[in-house]
Simulated assay, not measured.
Amino acid sequence: MSEMNRRADPAPSRWSYRVHRIMLTPLYRRLLRVGIPFSVCFLAAASYLSQADVQESIWLTISDLRNQIESRPEFTVRLLSVEGASPGVAEAIHDSFPYRLPASSFDMELDDVRRAVEALPAVSAAAVRLRQGGVLEVQVQERQPAALLRTREGLKVIDVGGVVIDTAPSRAARPDLLVLTGEGAAAHVAEALEIKRAAGPLQLRLRGLVRMGERRWDVVLDREQRILLPEQNPVRALERVIVLNESQEMLERDIAAVDMRLAARPTLRMRERAVEGWWHVRNMGVGTEEQ
């Protein structure tokens, strides 16, 4: 058979077949359509942005846009509103506010404002939020005065947890508060308040409580009388004294103290002049018998 009559083989070559198969794969077609153009654009942008003058221009533009946004009236805080605080605490919050108004809300850290408010002795907790109209609202939960603590520095107003809230110039300035003193008194305010509530008929005579040896309380009454309470169940011991006083008018007599530290054996401590009077009467009685 001659060369002219030989028919060409219609099957593709091995390499042509492989190239054709690769061109038909989705990954390769996606690479050609997306990957290569993206790589070219990325390299061009990186080359452009790597220039120092271009970077400086971009940062200046961003800074200018940020200043324009932050200085807009809707983002400006003009007023500090304090809710739930007494006038004195509200004034202290305004004085301790860490920012000068008006100021941009973007320049304020609300957590810093909250911590500054909660650092005040009279504040137990605070919540801070931004309101419409450029108002920064501070919701305050104040500590409630529970007692007066007498120290070497003077009278301190404390809450039920023993935290010092304020100072008192004198006892007469807060006649509604119980006076406490002694080592460890501030750590047991709740127990002292229970004793005060149990005092009942002795409320008008009650002058304060003294913490003794950091273990127990002495109830101080007028006329220099004391009730020595035990370490355990002091309220119950005080109630026993009140019952005895109501039945026998024990505290109306010339005694210095009622010792309830031993529950099974309450003890009365007479005043020195009462003891002397008792000895005088006894001696006179003995002399009369001898005559």
Rank of each mutant, 00 (worst) to 15 (best):
E137G: 08
I158N: 03
I165M: 09
Q141H: 12
D176G: 10
L149A: 05
G154S: 05
G154T: 02
V157C: 09
P169K: 13
L148Q: 03
V140P: 03
Q139R: 14
R174K: 11
V179P: 08
L180E: 05
L155P: 04
P145F: 01
R152H: 04
P145L: 02
L180F: 00
E153S: 12
A146D: 01
R143T: 05
R150L: 09
L148H: 04
T181D: 12
A146T: 00
Q141T: 15
P169M: 12
G161V: 05
R152Q: 07
T181S: 15
Q141N: 13
Q139E: 15
E137R: 08
I158T: 07
K156E: 11
L180Q: 03
D166S: 15
D176V: 09
R152D: 10
R152A: 10
A172M: 14
K156F: 05
V157R: 02
G161P: 08
P169F: 11
S170T: 14
V179I: 11
L177C: 10
Q141I: 14
D159M: 10
S170E: 11
R174N: 13
G154Q: 01
E142D: 12
E142R: 07
D166G: 14
E153C: 07
D166R: 13
Q144A: 14
T167S: 15
L148I: 00
A173K: 07
P169V: 13
D176Q: 09
P175S: 11
